[in-house]
Design a protein around this nucleic acid. Structure first.
Ligand code: FES
Ligand code: FES
Lengths: 145, 145
DNA sequence: ATAATTAAAGATATATTTATCTTTAATTAT
DNA sequence: ATAATTAAAGATAAATATATCTTTAATTAT
């Protein structure tokens, strides 16, 4: 469904939202371990997510690390896809035609569009903080342990 | 959603099912043009689909080309994913965890599983011939013209 | 001020996917 | 039989995705 980059971005963001606060920032090592992701690659991805403080925030230096603001927690999961330039995926033709449209539909369009709508709805309504809250509550996981 | 390879495989198969018969086989050039796909790459992909006559059939030589049997037309679209080794996609965790399961669900699992079920159902019940028939009927397309 | 710590930025490496080109084999028509 | 046509197979190339490593900059504690 998504690229590795986007999967790591989603897992890292959820992990940060669940574990961090402005007072307790997380280092790249902890994030990578907590999400079963390669540390240096995850670092690169977090750079994209912190650019312009779009989703994740960070500070360098001792006791520095990554955290997410209460504001940003309210963003839909969709905004992570946007930051990773993978939001196009939600709107593509499932057979790879240049456009997915009602006026020039592919043979799978009619049935796929209902599924697509649910996908879009899921990513646009579910917020980062909702996903993070789920984990705290119960038996929900963000790694392979 | 799918790799380029799989997209080309789906489009080519639908095109062949729509236009060919045992008497009227299609050359690689016609298939590539009819589906807006790169000819030599599509040729490679058709080799995978013809291996063991799994889905597509072919004959070399003059008046040769690709066609699909009435039997094969009854296969679900899912069988094309199988042939392209991309059937795993339907069962993966949307966050990229090693397993998607009820017992160790990721934060998106509960909501995604309903969508996933519909995707699986679509690919397992829709047949190649149904997709091809749709095109003949009306305003349904398999290329970008 | 200095040293220590941490992320940011940049350079590089590896693997995979996508794509093309060339040679071979099969089939058919003459 | 020979030549023509077509797909199969194999080799190679280009592009992209994934991953790591090194250097730099920022911040903090001493
Ligand atoms: S046109 Fe193919 S999914 Fe909409
Ligand atoms: S565990 Fe992630 S989608 Fe099922």
């Amino acid at each position: 469904m998504f690229s590795k980059s986007t999967e790591y971005a989603l897992r890292a963001t959820i992990y940060i939202a669940q574990k961090s606060s402005k007072e307790l920032k997380l280092g790249i090592k902890a994030i990578a371990e907590g999400t079963d992701s390669p540390p240096s690659f995850t670092a690169k991805i977090l750079q994209e997510l912190t650019r312009d403080n779009k989703i994740i925030s960070s500070v360098s230096g001792p006791n520095g690390g990554f955290y997410i603001t209460e504001e940003a927690k309210k963003l839909p999961v969709r905004s992570i896809l946007d930051a990773m330039d993978e939001d196009g995926m939600l709107y593509r033709c499932i057979l790879g035609l240049n456009q997915c449209s009602e006026t020039k539909p592919c043979p799978m369009h009619i049935q796929y569009k209902h599924i697509k709508e649910q996908l879009i709805n899921l990513f646009e309504t579910k917020t980062i903080q909702e996903l993070a809250a789920d984990i705290r509550d119960g038996e929900i996981f963000i790694n392979n342990d």
